[in-house]
Computed example of a mutant assay.
Amino acid sequence: MTDALKRLSDEGVAIWLDDLSRRRITSGNLAELLDESHVVGVTTNPSIFQKAISEGHGYDRQITDLASRDVTVEEAIRMITTADVRDAADVLRPVYDATGGLDGRVSIEVDPRLAHATRPTVAEAKQLAWLVDRPNTFIKIPATRAGIPAITETIASGISVNVTLIFSIERYRMVMDAYLEGLEQAKAKGLDLSDIHSVASFFVSRVDTEVDKRLDALGTDEAGALKGKAALANARLAYQAYEEVVASDRWTALEAAGANRQRPLWASTGVKDPAYPDTLYVTELVAPGTVNTMPEATLKAVGDHGEITGDTVRGTYEQARADLDALAKLGIDYDEVVEKLEVEGIEKFEKSWSDLLASTEAELKRLAPKEA
């Protein structure tokens, strides 16, 4: 099942798994995906951890110990999630070593309730990096307005960052600028820039979900012809913005000092509309120096029947711009769409965090030692 995945990897796309659980680690499944499916990284989020903890009994032993210590629910969550990330990082360490730190990484997110607070986000990023204590970790920071300066400060302290929840090209440019500024500050401090890495997670499928809903409401043939085009156009123009930055004199100077490129990462690549090919946001976003983090179902679909035909991003910019312009002419407000998606993205992660708190609290109560 790995021929298409190998071709994808050979085109310069790093294949990451958007999922993690203790069972996946202890069963050997994660190691198997590395060996057989060309997976070279892992991303997590509150939803993934909530699902993992609420299903099965893989966490019973640790939760029993935590309950015996009468820890808070939030402390329990941090002990549980950082343990999984640490163990997954150990599984991926050979990839990290073989790629000089480029891949073999596991991402863990700051508390989404801090998304609009810069100082607490930086403090939590430092705490998570210390707790996991593995060089092949990414700390995920959302690309909110408060998150932008937090990215700079975290990078400047030498901590590698996965910037998440990017929906607009304008915000993506701010993210890239924040990374460069962080590197410049790190360089001024005398830090080794080659030790600092970053990816910028540009969300894909949710753009189509929102835009297609608006196109359906218009109900015209012209609107119908544009369905399924917004997300790819948006992502492709983001890659054009990335190319512009890495061609700049500012970046050239940092790269000469040992800095690593902040790779674009395609996130939210599971197809939501069954009318679209289930490999759409993989096969149509092939470009060198990118990452695609996939849910397992998408990974399997690509391995089974994905058609990798080479670079499907460069050379598409004129059509991508035309597609977004056509949407604007129909009254689809790009700025309104991406702003709505960012607000909803934070709300969804906050809801998942609340669910994670509730699930963990229930497990702590269930497994608490009984009074003698």
Rank of each mutant, 00 (worst) to 15 (best):
L8R: 11
E11D: 12
V13N: 08
D18E: 08
L20C: 03
R23P: 00
I25S: 06
A31D: 15
L33P: 11
S37P: 00
T43F: 11
I48R: 12
D70V: 05
A76W: 08
I77V: 04
R78C: 08
I80F: 11
T81C: 15
R86N: 09
R86L: 00
V91N: 03
R93L: 12
S107I: 08
R113N: 09
H116Q: 12
P120N: 07
A123D: 15
K126C: 06
K126R: 14
P135A: 00
N136G: 02
I139Q: 11
T152N: 07
F167W: 09
F167T: 04
E170L: 13
R171P: 03
D177Q: 14
D177N: 13
E181L: 13
G182M: 06
G182T: 09
L193P: 09
D195T: 15
H197W: 12
S198C: 10
V199L: 13
A200P: 10
R206I: 04
V207T: 14
K213M: 03
D216G: 03
G228T: 07
L232Q: 05
L232G: 08
A235R: 10
R236V: 02
A238L: 13
A241G: 06
E243T: 01
A247M: 02
T252Q: 14
A253R: 14
G270N: 13
A287T: 12
A287W: 07
P288D: 13
T293L: 09
P295K: 07
P295Q: 04
T298A: 09
T298P: 00
L299Q: 00
H305P: 05
E307I: 14
Y317P: 01
R321M: 03
R321A: 11
A322S: 13
L324Y: 04
L324A: 05
K329T: 14
G331S: 08
E344P: 00
E344D: 15
G345H: 04
I346C: 04
S352Y: 00
L357P: 00
A358E: 15
R366Y: 13
P369I: 06
K370G: 00
